[in-house]
């Protein structure tokens, strides 16, 4: 418990540091930091719609946060969330094309969900296999897979299942059965019961990672490959499994976006969810439950900063990148908060 407390304190300190630095930057840009802070909060909590939108931005981050946190357990750094979620979303849209005759909403949603999970999972599994069988560094391969996913999704959208009636780069509209209903209270913000499902999912994964034999194997491999191998745990299988799960989680972003929001695949829909997921996971410091507050924080940033364009003169929504970058640096710079604590046993 003590260790967890310390970790949370460090995260909070990192967030405060990053936020403070960013606000100082705003001050020098000639914008009142208080105003920026006020805009950030008002625009994310000001109304039912605002709050719904905040949750809508946070929802993909639960998933992409998991997509980073699960492989980190096994010692892998998955930078491929962006590509995995594109492929997942594409698969969800494709599920609507393939399963257009499914009438039952439950069956339709489950069908599309399975599609998104498996497709994203396979996209994650490929770097996992390359790592396990060929030793290719997962950071490089997942980055490359992101670019390939971008090209592939653009091809599929423009050539294979394009909406012929639309002038935009988007796929055909999904049948009614595939649409998730938002809460009325959110006044148009596309978020409903799904948010609770996602929070429950984080709890389930946490419980499973901590208590299952598979979760133990991932941890053992991540901590000490050689010891794991000596005691009969295959790092190859742990890596492939972790990357499949990670890809699957990211792929489920397709459910949030395609079933919950646009009801189709739109090119460029992702607000860098895959990359922000890295920040989410890092802020949570490997603790899976920590993803919940961390994703919400980044959801607030995302939603709040969207209003900066209109509400302020000197700063734009891109300020959120600066804040995010500084927060991560503040959190990972281990030495920053350890005041000259000398190692006792040298």
């Amino acid at each position: 418990m003590n260790r967890m407390m310390k970790a949370s304190l460090k995260s909070i300190a990192g967030v405060l540091l990053g936020l403070t630095l960013a606000l100082i930057v705003c001050h020098f840009a000639g914008e009142s930091p208080w105003k920026v802070l006020k805009v950030l909060f008002q625009s994310s909590f000001g109304s039912g719609y605002d709050f719904g939108m905040t949750l809508f931005y946070a929802a993909p981050l639960f998933l992409t946060g998991l997509a980073v946190s699960i492989p980190i357990r096994a010692g892998l750094f998955n930078v491929g969330g962006e590509g995995q979620l594109l492929i997942g979303a594409l698969a969800a849209a494709y599920a609507g094309v393939v399963g257009k005759n499914i009438a039952s909403p439950v069956a339709a949603v489950l069908f599309a969900t399975a599609f998104a999970f498996v497709a994203g999972g396979i996209w994650g599994l490929i770097p996992g296999i390359l790592k396990a069988k060929r030793g290719s560094h997962e950071v490089i391969t997942t980055i490359m897979m992101n670019f390939i996913a971008a090209g592939l999704s653009s091809y599929v959208t423009l050539y294979l299942i394009k909406d012929p009636e639309s002038s935009q780069a988007e796929t055909m509209l999904l049948p009614e059965a595939f649409h998730l209903k938002p809460f009325e209270k959110f006044a148009g913000a596309p978020m409903g019961w799904l948010i609770f499902v996602l929070i429950a999912l984080v709890f389930v994964i946490h419980y499973w990672m901590w208590n299952s034999v598979r979760g133990y194997e991932l941890k053992a491999v991540g901590e000490n490959e050689k010891a794991a191998e000596t005691y009969g745990i295959s790092k190859q299988s742990a890596w492939m499994f972790a990357m499949f799960m990670a890809g699957g989680m990211a792929g489920l972003v397709g459910v949030v976006e395609v079933l919950g929001n646009a009801h189709r695949f739109k090119l460029g829909f992702s607000a860098d969810y895959g990359f922000v997921g890295i920040a989410v996971a890092l802020l949570a410091r490997g603790n899976i439950l920590g993803i919940i507050p961390s994703a919400l924080l980044f959801g607030i940033l995302q939603k709040g900063s969207a209003s900066l364009d209109l509400e302020t003169d000197k700063v734009t929504r891109d300020l959120s990148y600066i804040i995010q970058g500084l927060i991560i640096l503040g959190v990972v710079a281990e030495g920053l908060f350890e005041w000259r604590k000398k190692a006792k046993n040298a």
């Binding site: 419980y207 499973w208 208590n211 034999v213 598979r214 133990y216 005691y231 009969g232 745990i233």
Partner: peptide, 23 residues
């Protein structure tokens, strides 16, 4: 956790549960 290493499939310490084999 270290005591479990190599014993992570021992039926004395693990059993089937809701989400697969649990510790």
């Amino acid at each position: 956790e270290n005591f479990l290493l190599g014993q992570h499939e021992d039926p004395r310490y693990t059993g089937l549960g809701l989400f697969g084999r649990m510790i």
